[in-house]
Simulated assay, not measured.
Amino acid sequence: MARVSQEHLDARRRQILDGAALCFARNGFHATSMQDVLKEVDLSAGAVYRYFSGKDELIGAIVAEVMGEVRTAFEEAARQSPPPPPDELVASVLGRTLESRAYVTADGEPAFARLVVQVWTETVRNERLAAVLDEGYAAVRAAWTKVVEAYQESGMMRADVPADDVARTMISTVQGFIVQQSLFGPVPVEVLRNGLRALMSMGR
């Protein structure tokens, strides 16, 4: 029997994750069955269950992956001296995340924002998913705190405000932008960048 390459395994896992995310964004977690996912990815049950035990594991994997990508992007920025200013950094990271998750719903709208909002809602009843999200949020917050500390050390930002306060505020800004996209439709990430740039230009 021919040995399956790691590249093939990775590609199949990617196919399943992308298809599942599109199903969840289109119909919600509870209205989506594993049969819907199998139909979307055009694979047998055995092929899918080889990678994921069920719906909850699929959801957790999607959340962990997205949070990991965001955390990595901010950690990379923190290693720059100094990091890019907040308006450029937030727009770059969010834009990259949205582009890498360019799922499209049946009505032609990008599904990433809908998926994120559904994940937040699902954590109320799903303790395992809540734990995954908590861990991811803590990592992103820690990465953002490092970025803020780098701003303060370089003189780009006032140093008398706790770095964690700034980190939480910037994360809230991104979360709010995602909610707007979910509720009111796609908005270019440049809108967020421009708004942050204007706020940053204000005097005391």
Rank of each mutant, 00 (worst) to 15 (best):
115 L>T: 00
88 E>W: 11
148 V>N: 00
112 F>I: 09
58 L>T: 00
46 G>C: 04
129 L>G: 00
96 R>H: 14
132 V>R: 02
67 M>T: 10
114 R>F: 03
69 E>L: 09
144 W>K: 14
101 R>D: 11
136 G>P: 01
54 G>Q: 02
131 A>V: 09
143 A>Q: 03
41 V>M: 02
42 D>V: 05
44 S>L: 06
29 F>E: 02
34 M>V: 15
67 M>D: 13
124 V>F: 12
104 V>A: 11
76 E>G: 08
116 V>M: 07
147 V>Q: 03
108 G>D: 05
114 R>N: 01
127 E>Y: 14
151 Y>H: 10
64 A>Q: 06
80 Q>Y: 07
152 Q>Y: 06
85 P>S: 06
107 D>C: 07
157 M>Y: 02
127 E>L: 14
50 R>N: 09
61 A>C: 07
130 A>Q: 07
33 S>Q: 03
148 V>T: 04
31 A>R: 12
83 P>L: 06
123 T>I: 01
95 G>W: 08
145 T>R: 02
105 T>W: 13
132 V>P: 00
103 Y>M: 12
93 V>L: 07
119 V>N: 00
119 V>Q: 03
89 L>W: 03
49 Y>L: 10
60 G>N: 15
34 M>K: 07
30 H>R: 13
95 G>V: 13
40 E>T: 11
64 A>N: 05
40 E>S: 13
34 M>A: 15
53 S>M: 09
32 T>Q: 01
122 E>A: 04
122 E>V: 03
132 V>N: 00
143 A>F: 02
144 W>N: 15
87 D>G: 13
43 L>N: 00
154 S>N: 06
90 V>K: 04
128 R>P: 08
121 T>I: 09
127 E>R: 15
71 R>M: 08
110 P>G: 07
39 K>M: 10
103 Y>K: 08
51 Y>R: 05
117 V>G: 02
111 A>C: 08
81 S>N: 09
89 L>T: 06
63 V>C: 08
91 A>N: 11
107 D>A: 08
97 T>G: 12
109 E>D: 11
150 A>F: 01
138 A>K: 05
155 G>I: 06
122 E>S: 04
69 E>Y: 13
39 K>P: 11
132 V>Y: 00
58 L>I: 06
102 A>I: 10
127 E>A: 15
86 P>F: 12
49 Y>A: 09
105 T>I: 13
27 N>G: 15
147 V>G: 04
148 V>I: 07
108 G>F: 07
146 K>N: 10
106 A>P: 09
90 V>I: 12
55 K>R: 06
65 E>T: 14
150 A>L: 04
52 F>W: 03
104 V>Q: 11
85 P>G: 06
151 Y>P: 05
103 Y>Q: 08
44 S>G: 07
26 R>G: 10
114 R>M: 03
91 A>S: 11
124 V>M: 09
93 V>S: 04
67 M>F: 14
35 Q>E: 13
69 E>F: 13
156 M>P: 07
151 Y>C: 11
144 W>A: 14
148 V>P: 00
34 M>D: 07
66 V>D: 14
36 D>P: 03
94 L>D: 10
61 A>L: 06
156 M>S: 13
139 A>P: 02
110 P>C: 06
108 G>P: 05
34 M>N: 09
55 K>S: 01
128 R>Y: 11
86 P>Q: 13
81 S>A: 09
79 R>F: 05
123 T>R: 00
156 M>T: 09
105 T>L: 14
129 L>W: 01
60 G>F: 11
146 K>P: 08
132 V>E: 03
143 A>H: 01
132 V>G: 02
